[in-house]
């Protein structure tokens, strides 16, 4: 079965996930088309982060199906390397490698995992650092960078693998308020370049601006979803309304 570009790039169907007795995902389904930007919002503990970690096979699922470009993630024989070449991920805590400089962080995976040629990798890495607007910081260690700068290096590090989809797991939640904007700008640039993005976020204004589609999750299910305009202004479900009234 081959995947074509008109089919959803990421297709999630009836996914169930439990940690021990605690069921965090109780049948979640959603589709993401190529070039689409979707935002998943919802209260803490509603399973948003777990959902996108499942897309990258960092967590396994008990039931249901996740397909990335037609490849089933919920498969014991899954080639994780192939999946992770297609799916880039950025974490809340940046998780840069503290013993490597910014440019080395970006170069590491293409060199070690893809075994690409060093000079080409370095050239590309420097271009990516420039793209996330960190020129001049190439040789700084993560410890010498602000949170926002580290997070942009982390984005560049994921982009170095040439992913088809990018996952953003509350990437601005740990940042100082004054550096949130620069990271969001970087993501916006990416979205405008046509990158397929799945974001878990608490930045409602940003979600409204960049998302093509918003999903609201609560207690492991998708309560409501729709394009930003109708979602934010004409929410129907009482849980959505309550959440939006608290956060806006």
């Amino acid at each position: 079965m081959s995947w074509t570009e008109d089919q959803p790039m990421v297709s999630i169907k009836d996914v169930h996930k439990s940690f021990g007795d605690l069921e965090v995902l109780k049948g979640v389904s959603l589709d993401v088309k190529k070039g689409e930007v979707i935002c998943i919002i919802g209260p803490s503990g509603s399973g948003k982060s777990t959902l996108i970690r499942c897309v990258n096979a960092l967590n396994d699922i008990q039931q249901g199906s996740i397909r990335v470009e037609g490849q089933e993630v919920n498969d014991p024989d899954l080639n994780k390397l192939e999946l992770r070449k297609k799916v880039g991920m950025v974490f809340q805590q940046y998780n840069l490698f503290p013993h490597k400089t910014a440019v080395q962080n970006v170069m590491m995976a293409p060199l070690r995992v893809l075994k690409q040629d060093k000079s080409a990798v370095e050239k590309k890495a420097r271009a990516l650092i420039k793209k996330v607007r960190l020129e001049g910081k190439e040789d700084a260690f993560p410890g010498e960078l602000s949170g926002g700068q580290q997070q942009r290096v982390a984005i560049a590090r994921s982009l170095a693998m040439n992913p088809d989809v990018m996952l953003f797991d509350e990437v601005t939640a740990a940042l100082d308020p004054e550096t949130v904007g620069e990271v969001l700008q970087t993501i916006k640039d990416l979205a405008e370049d046509g990158m397929t993005c799945i974001l878990v976020t608490h930045e409602m204004g940003f979600a409204r601006e960049v998302a093509d589609h918003i999903y609201f999750t609560d207690r492991g299910v998708i309560v409501e979803h729709g394009p930003p305009a109708s979602f934010f202004d004409e929410a129907k479900d009482p849980r959505t309304k309550e959440f939006l009234s608290q956060i806006l």
Binding site: K80, M89, F91, L114
Partner: peptide, 29 residues
């Protein structure tokens, strides 16, 4: 931190690469 190891896994590092490139250099320090 587990999260640093996870970041390497998400970039496609296999177990041995995670160990030699990330865990050991950091643990040694």
């Amino acid at each position: 931190p587990e999260s640093t190891v996870e970041a390497a896994e998400a970039l496609g590092f296999n177990r041995l690469q995670v160990y030699t490139d990330i865990t050991l250099p950091l643990a040694f320090r």
